[in-house]
Every structure is written in structure tokens, then in C-alpha cells.
């Protein structure tokens, strides 16, 4: 009996030692969008700090949300969009940030800070921003296009590619009626239903991951796509033109945040601060031409990058953009609405 106890305590002691010696090896588990944080940025961070970074990817905010809500995974850093931050803050899922460790937050343009979804950036910092607008293949579409109404007209039937995203499509219809993008009420949905009924049969392709494919290979000649996609198209060929819809648009802000359950908060904050460095942020922009909220990084970018209308809308345009609020349980209704109309 005694020996047994001895063995047991020795084992425990060793286990404890093992644990203690394992603790200083620094880890960071990132749960982020696939293809959004370049690998060489992560490698640079590891090299500089000695932190071992593991990366797990998701393809939509909701995949991340369902996994987080089910209690899966030990994540130290997540990358939600603005409306998800709002929901996560409301449900107390996030760890408050220590701004003393985020000295580089000063590089971010004020227009992206202190947003309604996270006042004073208590829980999140902006990573990349962007908008949704219209891309026109001017070789194939000769009419002037200025608005959603110009896109969704019978002449364009079978030529249109849009994001495969019910919330987006509903947003465009709300904008076309002069309604606020967050007023997803039953009354407003009823009001936009006839609009959508006209629009949806005109659409040829729904694609959220790579709407540029249909435009590049000629199967679509006009599209409503992410700014980053638009930027790639503009860089690729002069025949593509970017149009900010006259009815308005929305601004999305993909952010970084730390879940409450995180075990390596310090490393997560160090990574955030690293990302906020101008020269690092600039490298991200080179790979992913979204709207970079980092002013200091923009100073390091080429004029060509900054002139890309899809990446960088004017400040006036940005001011007019609205930001998504979390619509909670309404998401299911708009999915049903769009599905119903598609199936007709």
C-alpha cells in the first residue's frame, strides 16, 4: 500500500513538473477565417516571440459561433465580424482587452474605432474592413450602372452573380426601398418581398466564396460582390469597373477578439498588437486587398493599391455606409424568405 502511494505521488509530482515545465512553452490557438491571415505573418510572429501558434479555420461566422457555443475547442483568438462581436459581447463570451498592451491601436483610423458594436474597443480590434458593391464588365454591359436598380433589371437576366448570403440580398432590397439595413422586421420583409420576387429570377449565380470566378470566366457580366473580390477583378483586367450603389452600402469590419475561455490571453494580445504594426498590416493588404483600417500601414502602400476603388472607397462614401447589427433569430426568417423565392 505504501509503495503504491509512493509511486502515485512520484507520478503526480512528475506530472506536475511536466506541467510546470510545459507551461512556459508559449502557445496561441487562433480560430480564424480560412485564407485571411497570411501564413508568413504567423511565422514572423512565432519567430519573433517564440510562441507556438496553432491555426484552425472556419468559412463563416456562424460555423465559428456554433462551435464556440457548443463549447468546442480552446481558442485564444477569434476573428468575428462586427455583428457577431455585438452578439458575443451581449452574451458575455469575450475577454476584455488590456489596452496598455495594444500600443499600436493608435495606427487605426478613428472612423473604425469606438464603433456601436463595441464601444471603446473594450473587446475587439479591427482587422480588415470592406464593403459590398457592384462590379460591371464594361465589355458586356454597355448601359450606365449606378444602383442596385440598374443591376436587377430584366435586360440583365442570366448575367448576374451575387453573394450567396440571404442577409446581403435582403440588405440590398432594404436599401433600394430607402429602409435601414438593420430594420429587418416582418413589416419591412413584407414590403421588400415583391422587389425580391423580381430580382431573384434574374440571378444566374450565387457564390460567396469566389464570385469573381463567374465574372472572370464570362458566365456573368455584372455582379454584387465583396470589395476584396472587386479589387482582385480590377487589378486583373481594365474592363471591370467598380460602382458604389447609389442606394447605399454597408461597411463590414472583421475584427479580432479573445474568448472568455482563452488560456493564453497575453499571447493573443501580443498577436493583436503585432498585427496592428504598419509594416505587418501592409503585408496583409498585399495579399488580401480589403479596406485596411490601419492608417500608418496605408502610408506604406503603393498609390495603385490605394487607388483601387473596390478596396478603398472614399471617406465620404464610408461615412454614408451603415453597419450590420446582430439580427438574432431573424436570420432564420430571411434564409427561409430567400430559399422560398429561389425555389419558386
Amino acid at each position: 500500500m505504501k509503495t503504491k502511494k509512493l509511486v502515485l505521488s512520484t507520478v503526480t509530482a512528475f506530472a506536475f513538473l511536466g506541467f510546470a515545465s510545459a507551461a512556459p512553452t508559449k502557445n496561441l490557438n487562433i480560430y480564424c477565417w480560412s485564407e485571411y491571415i497570411p501564413q508568413n505573418i504567423i511565422d514572423q510572429f512565432s519567430k519573433e516571440t517564440g510562441v507556438k501558434v496553432s491555426v484552425e479555420n472556419y468559412a463563416s461566422n456562424e460555423e465559428m459561433l456554433s462551435k464556440l457555443a457548443a463549447g468546442g475547442g480552446d481558442y485564444d483568438l477569434i476573428q468575428p465580424s462586427e455583428y457577431v462581436i455585438e452578439a458575443l459581447v451581449k452574451d458575455k463570451f469575450l475577454h476584455p482587452l488590456d489596452h496598455a498592451k495594444l500600443s499600436n491601436l493608435k495606427n487605426i483610423a478613428p472612423q473604425f474605432l469606438n464603433m456601436p458594436f463595441d464601444p471603446d474597443n473594450k473587446f475587439s480590434i479591427p482587422y480588415m474592413a470592406g464593403t459590398v458593391g457592384i462590379v460591371v464588365n464594361t465589355d458586356l454591359v454597355k448601359d450606365e450602372v449606378r444602383s442596385f436598380a440598374d443591376v436587377f433589371k430584366p435586360e440583365n437576366k442570366g448575367k448576374i452573380v451575387v453573394l450567396d448570403d440571404a442577409r446581403e440580398i435582403v440588405t440590398w432590397a432594404l436599401l433600394s426601398q430607402g429602409l435601414g439595413i438593420n430594420q429587418v422586421t416582418d413589416k419591412n420583409l413584407k414590403q421588400i418581398k415583391p422587389i425580391l420576387q423580381q430580382w431573384i429570377p434574374l440571378i444566374k449565380v450565387y457564390d460567396s466564396d469566389s464570385p469573381k470566378t463567374a465574372l472572370l470566366n464570362g458566365d456573368a457580366s455584372i455582379g454584387v460582390v465583396w470589395g476584396g473580390e472587386g479589387a482582385i477583378l480590377l487589378n486583373k483586367n481594365k474592363k471591370f469597373r467598380w460602382v458604389m450603389p447609389s442606394e447605399g452600402a454597408h461597411l463590414f469590419i472583421d475584427s479580432l477578439a479573445i474568448p472568455k475561455t482563452a488560456k493564453n490571453v497575453d499571447n493573443a494580445e501580443a498577436f493583436m498588437n503585432f498585427i496592428l504594426r504598419p509594416e505587418i498590416s501592409k503585408q496583409i493588404s498585399e495579399e488580401f486587398p480589403y479596406l485596411n483600417p490601419n492608417l500608418a500601414a496605408r502610408k506604406l502602400m503603393t498609390q495603385k493599391q490605394l487607388d483601387n476603388a473596390a478596396s478603398f472607397p472614399s471617406d465620404d462614401e464610408i461615412k454614408k455606409m451603415q453597419i450590420f447589427k446582430d439580427i438574432g433569430t431573424k436570420g432564420s426568417d430571411i434564409e427561409e424568405l430567400i430559399t422560398t423565392l429561389k425555389a419558386q
Binding site: 480560412s34 485564407e35 485571411y36 491555426v55 484552425e56 479555420n57 469566389s210 476584396g228 482582385i232
Partner: peptide
């Protein structure tokens, strides 16, 4: 992390 998980979002760029 398996290959499909790493690859899935790649179509974006």
C-alpha cells in the same frame, strides 16, 4: 487540421 479544412476558404483569393 486536415487538408480540406485548410483549403476550403482558398477560393476567395
Amino acid at each position: 487540421q486536415t487538408l480540406p479544412l485548410k483549403v476550403y476558404g482558398m477560393a476567395k483569393v
